[in-house]
Amino acid sequence: MSTHAHLGVDLSDTGARAAAWRTHGSQGQRLFDAGRLEELVAVAQRGALDFVVFDDDFALHPGGSTNRLDAALVAARLAPRTHGIGIVAAVGTTHTAPAHISTAIATIDQASGGRAGWQVAWSTRLDEVPTAGPRSTSAQTAAVQGASAAAATVGRLWDRPDELPVARPRFTTHDGVNFAAGKTKTSARPTTGRPPVVVRATTPAEIELAGRHADVIRIRATSRDEAAQTRARVLGAVVAAGRDPRDVRVLVDVYLIVGPDSASAQARLDMLTDLEGVSWDTGSLAFVGTSTGFAELVTDWLDAEAADGFTIRPASVQTDLVALVEGVLPVLRASDAFRSEYPGTTFRDTLGLQVPAHRFAATA
């Protein structure tokens, strides 16, 4: 268990609520402005948060806009413009070859001086994975198995990026035009050997995948006891994969609305609910209250070893990220539950994880 809480923030979209862009100050008109994301990361960096994560999943907000900036390209832009904070890009394995993933993340890692992270993503949508139904068990199993195989390959390529398989050209067709793709160019080995891998784990198959490959495991839980049980289960999967559980950080996803008082926070939730016409069913912890209240929850769960920290999904990024940095973090620091500065220069330094051994060092 780490001394301090590990806290990351998901900066996808304008917030975890689909109606966040319609609220005052959301800057919804700047959704596709990379400068806006740079400003938000600067706020997170000012608070010494562990990492920011960008997800370009088209299904983030069902029924909402399906337009997203590419997560890896956003991370690459931010890499040389930031310091200290980890930059995690969600890159899917359903359509992207491991060689492309390894090169993209390694490039971000080089540009940031060792602060890149890869969130393993996959798709089970009916139009993307051959299946009998939109959420069939076979589609989920196939997608997760494919993601696990891709993660293993990406790890090997990071250790030896020049060892890409040489195969006959692959042919793809787009708008009636055939394209041939041969061997992919590679980048230099990442600064820290292997950038931290992040996996969201809910199902048994996802937990197994996380146990084999993840450095940071994102779980869902609605109570402290549920979080503790899930954390024990995922750490068991880490042990079953022959790994040391001390080399993994387990973070609970929390959906956050912070106000100057509980009534104000609840009023903002009610407003967002009215705008959307649906209740806020997150499938994980949702905190609606004050900065002090959330800081107490973080400390309580940390002390109970229910989690190593949290991945925060601000209901409205522009509002709740500032409240987190300026309101919650000072309270946590006062109780020595969160650090005041970055402990080093790399993402692994921040997570308190050792640089992994080079698997091919003896033969390189």
Score class of each variant (00 low, 15 high):
Met1Glu: 02
Ser2Met: 03
Thr3Arg: 14
His4Glu: 11
Ala5Cys: 08
Ala5Leu: 10
Ala5Ser: 12
Val9Glu: 05
Leu11His: 03
Leu11Gly: 06
Arg17Met: 12
Ala19Glu: 06
Trp21Leu: 11
Trp21His: 13
Arg22Leu: 15
Thr23Ser: 10
Gly25Arg: 05
Arg30Cys: 09
Arg30His: 14
Leu31Ile: 13
Ala34Trp: 13
Glu38Lys: 04
Gln45His: 02
Gln45Phe: 07
Arg46Thr: 13
Leu49Asn: 03
Leu49Arg: 04
Val52Tyr: 10
Val53Pro: 00
Val53Met: 13
Phe54Ile: 14
Asp55Thr: 14
His61Asp: 07
Pro62Asn: 11
Pro62His: 12
Thr66Met: 08
Asn67Asp: 14
Asn67Glu: 14
Leu69Gln: 01
Ala71Pro: 00
Leu73Trp: 13
Pro80Gln: 09
Pro80Met: 12
His83Ala: 15
Gly86Phe: 06
Gly92Tyr: 07
Thr93Asn: 10
Thr93Met: 09
His95Lys: 06
Pro98Glu: 10
Ile101Cys: 08
Ala104Asp: 02
Thr107Asn: 10
Ser112Asp: 04
Gly114Asp: 05
Ala116Arg: 01
Ala121Val: 12
Leu126Lys: 10
Leu126Gly: 04
Asp127Phe: 13
Asp127Gly: 02
Ala132Phe: 02
Pro134Phe: 12
Arg135Ala: 14
Ala139Leu: 08
Gln145Glu: 15
Ser148Cys: 05
Ser148Trp: 01
Gly155Cys: 10
Gly155Trp: 01
Gly155Ser: 15
Trp158Lys: 06
Trp158Ala: 07
Arg160Ser: 13
Pro161Tyr: 02
Glu163Ala: 14
Leu164Gly: 13
Leu164Ile: 14
Ala167Glu: 03
Arg168Ile: 00
Phe171Ser: 13
Thr173Cys: 06
His174Phe: 11
His174Met: 04
Asp175Glu: 15
Ala188Cys: 04
Thr191Leu: 08
Gly193Val: 05
Ala205Glu: 15
Ile207Arg: 15
Gly211Glu: 03
Ala214Phe: 14
Ile217Asn: 04
Arg218Asp: 03
Ser223Arg: 04
Glu226Ser: 11
Gln229Lys: 07
Thr230Trp: 07
Ala237Arg: 11
Val238Phe: 12
Ala240Val: 02
Ala241Gly: 07
Arg243Cys: 10
Asp244Arg: 09
Asp244Ser: 12
Leu251Val: 15
Leu251Ala: 11
Val252Trp: 02
Val252Arg: 08
Val258Ile: 15
Gly259Trp: 12
Gly259Asn: 07
Gly259Ala: 05
Asp261Glu: 09
Asp261Ala: 04
Asp261Val: 05
Gln266Gly: 09
Gln266Tyr: 09
Leu272His: 05
Leu275Gln: 10
Glu276Ile: 01
Val278Tyr: 01
Ser279Cys: 00
Asp281Cys: 00
Thr282His: 04
Leu285Lys: 02
Phe287Glu: 00
Gly293Phe: 11
Phe294Tyr: 14
Glu296Phe: 07
Val298His: 08
Asp303Met: 03
Glu305Gln: 13
Ala306Asp: 00
Gly309Leu: 05
Arg313Thr: 06
Ser316Asn: 11
Ser316Asp: 13
Val317Lys: 00
Thr319His: 15
Thr319Cys: 00
Leu321Ser: 10
Val322Trp: 00
Leu324Asn: 07
Val328Met: 09
Leu332Gly: 08
Arg333Trp: 02
Ser335Ile: 05
Asp336Thr: 12
Asp336Ser: 15
Ala337Glu: 08
Arg339Ser: 14
Ser340Trp: 00
Gly344Gln: 06
Arg348Asn: 09
Asp349Lys: 05
Gly352Tyr: 08
Pro356Phe: 12
Phe360Arg: 09
Ala361Asp: 13
